[in-house]
Design a protein around this nucleic acid. Structure first.
Length: 296
DNA sequence: TTAGGGTTACAG
DNA sequence: CTGTAACCCTAA
């Protein structure tokens, strides 16, 4: 029967967010023309994008300009004179009491989450720990892996910060000192002092080709870190770059590490579903881009 | 082309 | 019936 309403799919929604992140809100036509999104949003018009973004802004806790009045009248919510440029983050789901969701007017503010604001460097380093171990473990080199190999693995799988090399060197040294790693002839191996059997018995590796993140590790593996790591694992270079492109360009000075990029991407998707959707979206986009270079 | 107001369709 | 999401219309 008559198509009720063409509801927005997570893919389209993700593409829209990515488009806004890249070109900025308001540039609907530009986003639509962008080869990265034209495929996913080909069924939508610029007006559709605008309307969707408006609706999105509403549910995200941001006040469009339309619901502002409605909300104010409805619940007597305090009139917050905020600009709300990016509604993509802000987790105000379920709760009626939005605890004032401070959406700063600054577009950059969105990368600054109240989660880890006190010890960002700490967490970042801790995460790098896991990546290093993962790299070594995955490569399964009998004699261990050298720094170059480790770096190559991580850079290939993730989106490391600019000063990644330096961080890696520092961290490797620290890991050796702490006894977590052994350095043998320029090569690093996982120290055998581990309690559990991390002998790489992850025999039944995921056939899906997913990056395995067994947290069978040391004391430093906290559930929190693991959760974040999990998010990062599903993030490819292209994926992170797409979202981080704008953020990096505008807040290059504020972003000292890829941590921020990860946050941006993380904020973009409200749940794993959206993340998956976006992954597919980007995959398609990249494929298209490679297939037909120089398209305009 | 975009921003905003208005309308219709659908869910609770 | 009420609120929300998608859609439509129009001024700027």
């Amino acid at each position: 029967m008559g198509a009720p309403k063409q509801r927005w799919t997570p893919e389209e929604e993700a593409a829209l967010k990515a488009g806004v992140a890249k070109h900025g809100p308001g540039k609907w036509r530009t986003i639509l023309r962008d080869p990265d999104f034209s495929l996913l949003l080909r069924l939508r018009s610029n007006v559709d994008l605008k309307d969707k973004w408006r609706n999105l802004s509403v549910t995200a806790g941001g006040y469009g300009s339309r619901e502002k009045a409605r909300m104010a009248l409805k619940k007597g919510r305090r009139v917050v004179p905020k600009l709300t440029a990016e509604p993509m983050d802000v987790d105000v789901n379920g709760l009626d009491n939005v605890h004032d969701t401070v959406i700063d007017a600054e577009p950059l503010a969105m990368v600054v989450e109240p989660l880890a604001l006190e010890e960002s460097p700490e967490k970042s380093v801790a995460r790098l720990d896991d990546l290093i171990l993962e790299a070594i473990r995955k490569r399964k080199e009998p004699s261990g892996s050298n720094k170059v190999a480790i770096a190559a693995y991580i850079e290939d799988q993730y989106w490391p910060p600019a000063d990644f090399q330096r961080l890696l060197s520092t961290k490797l040294k620290a890991l050796v000192n702490s006894g977590k790693l052994m350095k043998v002839n320029q090569k690093y191996r996982i120290a055998p002092s581990s309690p559990s059997s991390l002998d790489g018995i992850s025999a039944k590796v995921h056939s899906a080709g997913e990056i395995n993140g067994e947290n069978n590790s040391e004391q430093l593996t906290k559930p929190q870190v693991d959760a974040e790591l999990e998010k990062m694992k599903v993030m490819t270079k292209e994926e992170a770059a797409a979202f981080a492109a704008k953020a990096v360009a505008e807040a290059e000075l504020a972003i000292a590490e890829a941590e921020e990029a990860a946050r941006v991407a993380e904020a973009a998707e409200n749940d794993a579903e959206a993340a998956k959707a976006f992954l597919e979206a980007v995959t398609l986009s990249v494929r298209d881009r490679n297939a037909a270079s120089t398209v305009e």
